[in-house]
Computed example of a mutant assay.
Amino acid sequence: MKFALNLIGGIAVVLAIVGMFLPLLPTTPFLLLASACFARGSTKLHNWLLSNRLFGEYIRNYEQGRGIPLRGKVVALAMLWASIGYSAYSVGSTALIALLVSIAIGVTIYLCVFVPTLRTA
Rank of each mutant, 00 (worst) to 15 (best):
Glu57Asp: 15
Trp81Cys: 05
Ala104Phe: 04
Asn6Gln: 14
Leu49Pro: 11
Thr117Met: 10
Met79Tyr: 15
Ile84Asn: 08
Arg60Cys: 13
Ile59Cys: 02
Ala4Arg: 14
Leu100Asp: 05
Gly19Asp: 05
Ile8Pro: 07
Leu25Glu: 08
Arg60Leu: 12
Ser42Ala: 02
Ser35Pro: 00
Lys44Leu: 10
Met20Asp: 14
Val13Ile: 14
Ala95Leu: 14
Arg53His: 10
Gly92Trp: 12
Leu32Val: 13
Leu5Val: 01
Leu70Gln: 14
Ile97His: 02
Ser51Arg: 12
Phe38Glu: 00
Ile109Tyr: 05
Lys2Asp: 13
Leu22Ser: 03
Leu15Gly: 12
His46Asp: 01
Arg119Pro: 00
Gly92Lys: 13
Ala95Cys: 09
Leu31Lys: 13
Pro69Gln: 05
Ala16Thr: 09
Val18Arg: 01
Ser87Lys: 02
Gly92Val: 09
Tyr86Ser: 11
Phe30His: 10
Phe30Met: 15
Glu57Thr: 09
Ala121Ile: 01
Ser51Trp: 08
Leu22Met: 12
Ile103Thr: 03
Val13Ala: 02
Leu45His: 07
Ile97Glu: 10
Ala121Leu: 01
Val13Ser: 05
Leu118Met: 01
Gly56Glu: 14
Arg119Leu: 01
Asn47Lys: 12
Trp81Leu: 05
Pro26Cys: 08
Ala104Met: 08
Gln64Glu: 15
Val75Met: 09
Arg66Asp: 03
Phe21Gln: 05
Val115Met: 00
Lys44Trp: 09
Phe21Thr: 15
Arg53Ile: 04
Lys2Gln: 14
Ile105Arg: 01
Leu15Phe: 11
Leu15Glu: 14
Phe55Lys: 06
Leu96Trp: 12
Gly72Phe: 01
Gly67Tyr: 11
Tyr110Ala: 06
Ile97Val: 15
Phe3Asp: 10
His46Cys: 00
Ser93Tyr: 06
Thr28Phe: 10
His46Thr: 00
Leu77Phe: 06
Asn61Thr: 05
Leu25Phe: 06
Pro29Gln: 13
Leu111Cys: 01
Gly72Pro: 00
Leu15Val: 14
Thr108Gly: 04
Gly85Phe: 03
Pro116Val: 07
Val13Gln: 12
Arg119Gln: 03
Lys2Ser: 14
Lys44Arg: 13
Arg71Ser: 11
Arg71Leu: 09
Asn52Arg: 09
Gln64Leu: 12
Pro26Phe: 08
Leu100Cys: 00
Ala82Tyr: 04
Trp48Pro: 00
Ser51Thr: 11
Tyr89Trp: 15
Thr94Ala: 14
Met1Cys: 14
Val75His: 04
Gly65Met: 10
Pro26Thr: 01
Phe3Tyr: 06
Val101Pro: 03
Leu111Trp: 00
Cys112Arg: 03
Arg71Thr: 04
Tyr58Pro: 06
Met1Glu: 15
Thr108Pro: 06
